Simulated assay, not measured.
Amino acid sequence: MPDDLGEVIVEATRNGTYLKVTAVHVATGIEASAVGPAMEPKAVERLAIAKLRRLIATS
């Protein structure tokens, strides 16, 4: 988990061959989601966290 962001809650939901990962920044309530192949859960999680970083940087 990225320490520079503070506390982040990560939730993964599988739907067939796809995985949706949602990352929520606890301090601000900002959330970001990413969808990708269920066979690559860490890659989808990294993408969701990267999107969350961009959203926090622009807020």
Rank of each mutant, 00 (worst) to 15 (best):
T58A: 11
A34K: 03
G16P: 02
N15D: 07
V8L: 09
K42W: 00
E31Q: 14
E31I: 00
V44M: 00
D4A: 09
A57E: 13
A48T: 02
T17S: 11
P41T: 13
L52D: 06
A34N: 10
H25S: 11
V8M: 12
L47N: 13
V8E: 09
A38M: 12
A50C: 04
E40M: 10
E31K: 12
E40H: 05
P41S: 13
P41N: 14
T17H: 08
S59P: 01
I56Q: 01
S33H: 14
R14T: 09
A27Q: 11
G29W: 02
A32E: 05
G29E: 02
V35Q: 10
I56Y: 02
A12G: 15
V35E: 03
D3A: 06
A32F: 00
E7D: 13
T13I: 13
A23C: 11
P2W: 03
T58P: 00
V8G: 07
A50F: 01
A38Q: 09
S33A: 15
A12N: 14
A27I: 00
D3R: 01
G29K: 14
A12S: 15
A57K: 05
T17D: 00
T13V: 15
S33Y: 11
D4C: 05
E45Q: 13
A38K: 11
P2E: 05
G36T: 06
G16D: 00
K20G: 15
V26Q: 15
G6H: 05
A12M: 11
R53L: 07
A27L: 05
T17C: 09
Y18D: 07
V44H: 00
K42G: 10
R54C: 08
M1I: 04
L55A: 02
V44E: 00
E45R: 11
Y18W: 03
K20I: 14
D3N: 06
A50G: 07
A57R: 05
T22S: 15
R14H: 05
E11Y: 05
P37C: 03
T13D: 10
A23H: 03
N15I: 03
A23G: 07
L47C: 09
I30S: 01
A27K: 05
N15W: 06
A57I: 02
A27R: 12
L47E: 13
L55N: 02
V35Y: 10
V26E: 07
E40S: 10
E40G: 06
V24W: 01
R54N: 12
V21K: 04
L19K: 08
R53H: 09
I9C: 10
D3Q: 07
S33K: 12
P41M: 12
I30C: 04
K42E: 09
K42T: 13
Y18N: 10
E7L: 10
R54A: 09
E7R: 10
E11C: 08
P37R: 07
T58C: 09
P41L: 11
V10R: 12
P2M: 07
T28H: 04
I30D: 02
K51V: 01
N15H: 06
A12P: 01
R54D: 08
S33G: 15
G29P: 12
T28Q: 02
M1N: 13
V35M: 06
I30N: 03
K42M: 08
D3S: 10
Y18V: 05
E11W: 03
L55V: 01
A34H: 10
